[in-house]
């Protein structure tokens, strides 16, 4: 294994680990946050970064190959659709009258759970 390959593999490992970490954090947010709106925060941001990071690591691992273009297409798709999906969800919640949880009202607003 050449030095170049070693560095490339190390970078890929770091990227995949970072992505996995953000996926874990997004999931913890999905479980821990007090209401739907804050859960959406965690899900949209952490999942975008998590997916992007892992896919970037895998693209790096593949090297110069046609598959890399497909993986980059998936990354840009995730960057584009993830916030839009989050916004669609939040808007539906807002328009159907779900109130956000606040520290003042505590469990009174939204759906503290």
């Amino acid at each position: 294994m050449s030095l170049f390959e070693a560095i490339r593999n190390a970078a890929a490992v770091v990227l995949v680990c970072t992505g996995s970490f953000f996926f874990l954090v997004g999931t913890l947010g999905l479980i821990r946050f007090p209401d739907f709106y804050s859960r959406t925060h965690g899900a949209t941001k952490c999942d975008t970064v998590g997916a992007g990071s892992i896919l970037l690591g895998l693209a790096l691992l593949r090297g110069l190959h046609a598959d890399v273009l497909k993986i980059l297409a998936i990354i840009s798709l995730v960057l584009l659709t993830s916030p839009t999906a989050g916004h669609a969800l939040a808007r539906a919640a807002y328009r159907t009258g779900l109130r956000p949880w606040t520290r003042l009202v505590g469990g009174g607003g939204g759906d503290a759970d």
Partner: peptide, 14 residues
């Protein structure tokens, strides 16, 4: 809420 479930399914999908 229903939207929590949809959000969870979306996250699982990603």
């Amino acid at each position: 809420t229903v939207l929590d479930r949809v959000l969870a399914v979306n996250v699982i999908g990603t």
